[in-house]
């Protein structure tokens, strides 16, 4: 067991370093997230100029939701893991994993967790520096211990779901030459149903009930909504069960695609 963990500890360390390799990637992403925040401020500021409450929430709690979303994105979101995996398949870098007792999924996931740990922490820096600018706009719900206790596992499961989806898109390289189209297509779906365009609870109730059954709901909106007080205890606990179900299902799908894909894979050169 210890040697097992030791193996992936090294992958974890590689992930820490990958942040240095992809530093431009990070900086540009961080810059645009802040840009996005400006859009949020302008749009929702204008929305709330005509009304005090939207869906039962005031402007500060709506802004808090979007700020939370950005923090979460840098801690648990999949960035370009799909493209990296796709590259490794196309270049034949995965061939070495077929010969060694290293599980490719576990290897990639270790890199993902360490990379996100760094990117999440780094993202806190500009957000904290700029805090005086928007501090008056924030409003957290009254402190309740269960929110933290449920939001943390929800975050971990959300990370697993996000990574698994990215991994599955990477696996498509076994069948398709280009995965970019699929990735951007799913980005639109994820942006909408993951709650990045607007808090999902603003949707008509009937549609919200459907969204709750989909995995996208759990990859971003769910942990953010627990943190910012947009869902109650009952909904959070039942959500956690569905979320765990999706995490397992997606995990199974990654393994299925990997074993199916390898059958089509022809390792050339070495």
């Amino acid at each position: 067991m210890l040697t097992f963990l030791n193996k992936y500890r090294h992958a974890f360390l590689v992930g820490l370093q990958s942040n240095i390799v992809y530093r431009w990637n990070f900086l540009i992403r961080a810059f645009f997230s802040l840009f996005q925040l400006v859009v949020v401020f302008i749009l929702w500021g204008a929305v709330f100029s005509g009304t005090d409450r939207v869906g039962g929430f005031d402007l500060p709690s709506t802004i808090t939701y979007f700020v939370t979303l950005i923090v979460l994105q840098f801690f648990i979101g999949a960035f370009n893991e799909d493209y990296q995996i796709s590259e490794e398949i196309r270049n034949g870098l995965i061939n070495q994993f077929l010969l060694k007792p290293v599980n490719y999924f576990a290897y990639r996931f270790s890199i993902f967790t360490s990379a996100r740990l760094v990117s999440g922490t780094l993202m806190l820096v500009p957000l904290l520096i700029l805090l005086p600018l928007y501090k008056s706009q924030l409003a957290l719900p009254p402190f309740e211990a269960w929110r933290i206790l449920l939001a943390l596992p929800a975050m971990a499961l959300a990370a697993l779901i996000q990574f698994s989806i990215a991994y599955c898109f990477g696996m498509l390289t076994f069948w398709f030459l280009e995965i970019q189209g699929f990735v951007i297509l799913s980005m639109a779906v994820e942006a909408l149903l993951g709650g990045q365009m607007f808090p999902l609870d603003l949707m008509p109730q009937r549609l919200l009930r459907i969204a709750e059954l989909l995995p996208f709901y759990y990859q971003m909106y769910f942990p953010a909504a627990i943190f910012t007080g947009r869902i109650d205890y009952a909904r959070a606990t039942s959500g956690l069960v569905i979320q765990a179900g999706w995490a397992l299902a997606l995990l199974a799908l990654t393994q299925l695609l990997w074993s199916r894909g390898l059958r089509r894979h022809t390792a050339v050169g070495g």
């Binding site: 929305v47 009304t51 939207v54 779906v189 365009m197 607007f198 603003l202 949707m203």
Partner: peptide
Amino acid sequence: FWMSVNLLLVTVIYDHTASV
């Protein structure tokens, strides 16, 4: 898809307010 997402954002916002 992306165009629909943007239009849906408008629709959802105007479910809750009459003017922006």
